[in-house]
Amino acid sequence: MDARITLHVDGVARSLTVDTRTSLLDALRDHLGAMSPKKGCDHGQCGACTVLLDGRRATTCLAFAVAHDGATIITAQGLANGDGLHEMQRAFLDHDGFQCGYCTPGQICSAVGMLEEAEAGHPSHVTQDLTGPVVLTDDEIRERMSGNLCRCGAYVNIVAAIREVARKEGSA
């Protein structure tokens, strides 16, 4: 069954017709050509499809596009300002925060969303004092990024990249 929806993707309003069964991920990739969100597991377990959905990091494989009519989506590609890289993208390059690169767009969107959660004072599973300030130690970064798998095992450098951006922003 078809539905007509509009998605605001990386700053552009895009109208499209989707079968109700279409995931948000497939709508982005197959209908709109937004290829930076990747299909890894398609079960919410790997994080490769992570985007910023209405400002918050979310997996797009476990969402139906039709249920997000009107949503604002920022993909890893949309974080850049043309050729000017987002500071998280720059940090992943500077620290070699990837090998094959497949999980990288999801890692970067997740990291950007994660830093905003930390800035808003949200605790994590490893936060000792639930009501205290959040300091992004490496343990905190690892826990908060556990929804993004990297089968190349670039975790050490991913943490280094995120740590650098967090320090610049004063949260680590």
Binding site: T59, L130, G147
Partner: peptide, 23 residues
């Protein structure tokens, strides 16, 4: 929840991942 029922915050934070908890 954090101040009155810390076990509930901790339980939620131990479940799934950041991007799944947002959904």
């Amino acid at each position: 929840i954090r101040s009155r029922y810390p076990m509930l915050s901790q339980a939620l934070l131990s479940g799934a991942s950041g991007q799944l908890r947002n959904l």
